[in-house]
């Protein structure tokens, strides 16, 4: 199930936030998406996730055209998504946050899936806590757990590690690696280059809405255009 992005473009007035972006991600890849502030990373993710109308371009998963699909349709097709600031359902308990996910993509009973997921993300101790009382890191875990409930093919994550303390970062990364091992694809937006180069097999770099580099972490680190984009001239 490869995820293909072709010529995606998004303009805001005079600003072209995402400018003719194309790439393909194969099944099971763990891809980092980097770029300086305002380079269009969040906009691209929103475009892929169906939150904003793209001005041009095509998005497909395993051959299914998802260019015009609304977010819930994408979710049902196996595209998971987390946000820069986690958006858990504040007034619901941790368990309720998982239960409310429609069981469209799994034959297992929901109870079991919720139980397994709670186990996997190690939130069992706060299972009946109201979500708004969780720590920032726990909220990120919970948001990812909701994605797990979707049984996703690909997960789009916007800055999953920002504001997460080192211990929590390890459990979050552990969970992501575990999911990745199950064959789930990841596309992660991240500022922390160290984390990206250490964990991603491939890195895509955006600048002013354009893809300026796409390759292994080693290549990216040495790419003069990337260095220029980050350090300026």
């Amino acid at each position: 199930m490869s995820f293909s992005v072709e010529h995606v473009t998004k303009r805001y007035g005079g600003v072209t936030a995402v400018d003719d972006v194309s790439f393909q991600i194969g099944k099971g890849e763990f891809v980092g998406l980097i770029g300086p502030n305002g380079s269009g990373k969040t906009t691209l993710l929103d475009g892929l996730g169906g939150y904003i109308r793209k001005d041009a371009g095509r998005v497909a998963l395993g051959g299914h055209d998802l260019s015009k699909a609304p977010p819930y349709e994408l979710a049902k097709r196996g595209v998971g998504r987390t946000f820069q600031v986690p958006r858990v359902f504040d007034n619901m308990t941790v368990v309720e946050n998982l239960y409310c996910v429609p069981a469209a993509r799994s034959s297992e009973p929901k109870e079991k899936r919720v139980e397994d997921t709670m186990e996997m993300v190690r939130l069992a101790s706060v299972a009946h806590e109201i979500a708004k009382n969780l720590s920032g890191g726990q909220k990120k875990l919970l948001e990812l757990a909701r994605v797990v409930m979707l049984n996703p093919t690909i997960v789009l994550m916007d800055e999953p590690f920002s504001g997460v303390d080192p211990a929590m970062l390890e459990s979050l990364l552990g969970l992501m690696r575990e999911m990745n091992k199950e064959g789930r694809t990841f596309l992660i937006v991240e500022h922390n280059i160290a984390v990206i180069t250490k964990n991603c097999g491939r890195v895509i770099c955006l600048d002013e809405g354009k893809v300026i580099a796409d390759g292994s972490p080693g290549d990216i680190r040495n790419d003069p255009r990337v260095i220029e984009a980050y350090l300026g001239t």
């Binding site: 819930y72 979710a75 998504r81 958006r87 619901m92 996910v101």
Partner: peptide, 16 residues
């Protein structure tokens, strides 16, 4: 309840 709290996030998890 999820929709009441965050329409977009609800859609993200597949709620129509």
């Amino acid at each position: 309840r999820a929709t009441a709290q965050d329409r977009e996030a609800a859609q993200t998890v597949g709620i129509e």
